[in-house]
Design a binder for these strands. Structure first.
Length: 459
RNA sequence: GGCUGAGUGGCAGAGUGGCUAUGCAGCGGAUUGCAAAUUCGUUUCACGUCGGUUCAAAUCCGGCCUCAGCCUCCA
């Protein structure tokens, strides 16, 4: 039985979909004004893995990951760059698609953009005004009145009276309560705006997710995800908006993933301590990054360092080494102990580190069987590939992984040197053979002699 | 100040009231012409600290210490 930790109840709960066999999943995606960093990669990879696993269980999943393409930072960045907002957002949406594709992430079923949902946003705001959850300020903004929503704070466990409003940001006197937030911002000069019943303006930060999620998945849906930092206020506000407008419960299960850290500090744009996905891809393959992300449980912090990525690379090398030379044709093993352990690990709130440990046990088993029982080794090897695939791993040719990112020498040169060395070995000229091997090693190529001949891989 | 969460062997990172996590790195054996890969082994308590419950706790309960996050934009 699949159990998921629900931020709303602060405990693991058996997962029961609203409609049998179907799951609606919404994840807060990017605000597109810059390149994806490793923190973004984590959310994307984690929920990609969640979706793959849910589908492997037989659920029909509708996966929505939105794009926020209008907000203060976008407007500011476009202005700084001297480019149009549309140009900026399109550029970074394309970059994001390149990055996610590189990381082996499946496309969501829909990728709605905030600017395409202005009519739906206006409808929700109107309903909130009608239902008494919103008011218009003297500046012409429309604000949400948090005190009118009884359950405000239920997701983040906060009580209005405990929050230190005004501690770090000056209180806006035009609001009825300091924590009231803007639904609709009155237009300022030189800013994009849409017309509305309350005059020209643009949506506030939180409202677009209420509009897009309920439009794509219905007023009440199964799972909503995102980074921990969105729990408050973003997701809290989404609940207030959506439930205030529809009068129905909004989301059953809230999932929040932990941060990527660098030296025990959160990786974030505001701290400036981030690495972009494309930067890291220059040094490590996408699958190494993906593996690295999955080595810790999604709710735990993930410490980023070169040493950890290097370790991830070595670990993946081990798995691919096991798969090397195994035919992919044979039927994989199915309902054995490894499978059961894998499923029970993933059923336990998507415990990917545990699931990976089982892949290594399986890998060891395959290695042991390779010589004695090649057929069984092949079947287990294919099971390893299949289970890895549920986490988006082990889907490329072992040789492609092991020989990838070749820099110094061409494949032909390497093959040529191997042939020469083979000749030296057959005439027992060990000095010559070792010299060639050392020469290759200096270029980052490792040789491995087997009964079937010599193979090579990149260090 | 309020609210979350966390403290496990050299590093990373799971987990269960009593029995080997796993990976990387190191060391030793097998294997190899030598390597690499693979495999086997790796000594005494690895489980923040102080108490409590228990025949038994790193695992349950309580206090304390330390760290991170949220209460502003952030994945």
């Amino acid at each position: 039985m699949l159990t998921i930790y629900n931020s709303l109840t602060r405990q693991k709960q058996p997962f029961i979909p609203i409609q049998a066999g179907k799951i609606g999943l919404y994840v807060c995606g990017m605000t597109v004004y810059d390149y994806c960093h490793i923190g973004h990669a984590r959310v994307i990879v984690v929920f990609d893995t969640v979706v793959r696993y849910l589908r492997s269980l037989g659920y029909h999943v509708t996966y929505i990951r939105n794009i926020t393409d209008i907000d203060d930072k976008i407007i500011q960045r476009a202005h700084e760059n001297g480019e149009t907002i549309e140009n900026l957002t399109n550029r970074f949406i394309q970059a994001m698609h390149e990055d996610t594709a590189a990381l082996g992430v499946l496309l969501p079923d829909d990728e709605p953009r905030a600017t395409q949902f202005i009519p739906q946003i206006i409808t929700i705001i109107q309903r909130l005004l009608d239902n008494g959850y919103a008011y218009i300020t003297p500046h012409g903004d429309v604000c949400y009145a948090v005190q009118h929503f009884t359950n405000y704070g239920k997701l983040s466990g906060k009580r209005l009276e405990d929050l230190r409003a005004g501690e770090r940001v000056e209180i806006d006197r035009s609001k009825q309560h300091p924590l009231d937030f803007v639904l609709w911002k009155a237009a300022k000069p030189n800013e994009p705006s849409w017309s509305s019943p309350w005059g020209a303006g643009r949506p506030g930060w939180h409202i677009e997710c209420s509009a897009m999620s309920t439009h794509c998945l219905g007023n009440h849906f199964d799972i909503h995800g995102g980074g921990m930092d969105l729990q408050f206020p973003h997701h809290e506000n989404e609940i207030a908006q959506s439930e205030g407008a529809t009068g129905e419960p909004f989301v059953n299960v809230w999932m929040h993933n932990g941060f990527v850290r660098i030296n025990d500090e959160k990786m974030s744009k505001s701290l400036g301590n981030f690495f972009t996905v494309r930067e890291v891809l220059k040094q490590y393959s996408a699958e190494v990054i993906r593996y690295f992300i999955l080595t810790s449980h999604y709710r735990s912090p993930l410490n980023y360092s070169d040493q950890e990525l290097e370790s991830a690379k070595q670990a993946l090398t081990r798995l691919y080494t096991t798969l090397r030379g195994l035919s992919t044709i044979a039927e994989p093993e199915l309902d054995n102990l490894y499978e059961q352990r894998f499923i029970s690990a993933m059923n336990d709130d998507f415990n990917t580190p545990e699931a990976l440990a089982i892949l290594f046990d399986l890998s060891k088993e395959v290695n042991k069987l390779k010589d004695k029982e090649p057929m069984q080794a092949t079947r287990l090897g294919n099971q390893l590939r299949r289970l890895g695939g549920i986490m988006g791993l082990l889907q490329i040719e072992p040789e492609t992984f092991l020989q990838g990112q070749l820099e110094s020498l061409s494949t032909q040169e390497i093959e040529h040197l191997i042939t020469e060395r083979q000749a030296a070995r057959s005439r027992r000229d060990w000095a010559m053979a070792d010299q060639i091997r050392d020469q290759l090693q200096a270029s980052g190529i490792i040789l491995e002699d087997t009964a079937q001949g010599t193979s090579w891989r990149v260090m």
